[in-house]
Computed example of a mutant assay.
Amino acid sequence: MMGGGGGGATAIPTSKVCLEKIPRIVIDERSSILHECVLKLGKGGEVDATVGELGLEPPWGMEGVGVEVAEPVMGEREVGEGVKGKVAVMRRGGGVTFAKKAWEAQKAGAVGVIMVQNVGIWPYVMKDSKKEAEALGVVIPVLMIKRNVGEKLILDCGGGGLGEVGIRCGKIGEEDGCIICREGFSVGETVLRMPTCSHAFHEACALQWLKAHNNCPVCRRELPTDDEEYERERRRQGRNYSGGEGGGENNNWEELLFG
């Protein structure tokens, strides 16, 4: 049997367990969902990024700024003077929080931080739930890029293939709100963000769709179903839920979609 995610005529609901696990976000002024962020990599073109919910509050931007790789880890948190006046590129992890990485970069004179996701889960929002960045006094802009883009950026930095970057971050427009109801997002509303892509919708709108379909209303990337026959066919065809970087099949959809 072919379902909605496979391009056939019959729509199949998203798995009930998956619906329960998809994160809900209550929007506040700092929520990344209200902002769009673009990193310009010179001749490498532009890539989408997510703005961290810490550091300088959008809107902000910079042009023609140098980049420098910095890798503070637990017990060895010093960032070299090479980042002074530049944007520090840092991988997520190493036993150091986002806030402390940004703080170390700021102390060393960096004008911003590009954090590189260290796993395939994307999008990923950098939060500061413990208000650590606020306590430390982080005031420089912080953003995150996906793993494969970030690793190439790090290689380019080391090989001298990248000179300067530009970054712009600002409010999304009304047209970039919930595509289901055609309304924008507002502070205080609850939204649901798809684990297979960066698309977000009002919670009520998303649930109405996902209880009848197993894909994103925008890009049609699939989510799991409770239909065993459909899932067997999906595996046979080699369709991966993530639709992102990397390949291969992963039958543990909870690990694949939610880490």
Rank of each mutant, 00 (worst) to 15 (best):
K171Y: 14
V119T: 15
A212S: 13
G158I: 09
G243N: 14
M144L: 13
V83A: 08
E222P: 15
L192A: 08
G184P: 09
E29F: 07
W253V: 07
P23I: 05
P224F: 01
E164I: 09
L143Q: 00
G61H: 06
R234K: 13
A88L: 03
K86W: 00
G112Q: 02
G75S: 07
W122N: 04
A212H: 07
W253H: 09
C205A: 11
R193C: 11
M115N: 06
L155Q: 15
L155D: 15
P224I: 03
V138P: 01
P123K: 08
E78N: 12
V119S: 15
P224Y: 00
E175G: 14
A200K: 05
P141I: 06
G8W: 05
L54R: 00
V96P: 04
C181M: 04
L155M: 13
K211F: 04
W60C: 03
N240K: 14
P224R: 06
F258H: 05
V79D: 05
N214I: 06
V111G: 02
K171Q: 13
G5D: 14
P224M: 06
E151G: 03
N250F: 07
W60A: 01
P217A: 13
N214P: 02
A49I: 07
G80E: 12
N250Q: 12
G188H: 01
K152E: 14
G188W: 00
G243A: 13
M90C: 15
M62C: 13
V113R: 00
G82I: 02
E249A: 10
A212T: 10
A108P: 00
E132T: 11
M62V: 13
G42S: 00
E53I: 10
C219K: 12
G188Y: 00
V26W: 02
V51P: 02
K100P: 01
D156Y: 11
V89T: 10
L210S: 03
